[in-house]
Amino acid sequence: MDEDGQDDAALLAQAAGGDARAAGVLFDRLAPRLMAFVQRMNGGNRALAEDIVQEAFLRLWRKAPDWDAGGPAQISTWLGRVAANLAVDAHRRAARETALPDDLDPASDAPSAVATMIQAEGLSALDAALARLPDRQRQAVVLRHVEGYSNPDIAAMMGCGVEAVESLTARGKRRLAELLKEVS
């Protein structure tokens, strides 16, 4: 429940009835965290993140009339899962078009990225390091260690086995620690 006395489900019900103000309030409440998550998933691509957030909300509006306000699902969790799936799908499409192997480190020979990290601190350093991970490692690390999804959930989202997720998160986190160690 927010300070204005309306919870997310009530706002969604009003939005389902065509209330643009309620839709805007719900967006203001949920979009900033969703944007940060999606940007982190796709390595900082803001334009792609905005497309994904828009699509996630579009699916929410379509689901709004059937939303079970008394059910266990939270709107923020539902949006996060939809956005995660969209981000993984976007990566798959991009990988098909460019035919890059998943484990390729696209920034391994980019000294400017290291320089950026050295100057950065905290979450900025984390984001810079995450952006240097291979796409699937980054997605697995973000989903597991930032968002807290279980390995089976991540496997379903990423279309791979649980063992592959374990391997991706372990290698990703190790590499992340190395990259941040370089900074410190």
Binding site: F27, M35, A36, Q39, R40, G122, L123, L126, V146, G148
Partner: peptide
């Protein structure tokens, strides 16, 4: 910490 991070749309 990143879990609660936000980015202004």
């Amino acid at each position: 910490r990143a879990r609660d991070d936000t980015a202004q749309p």
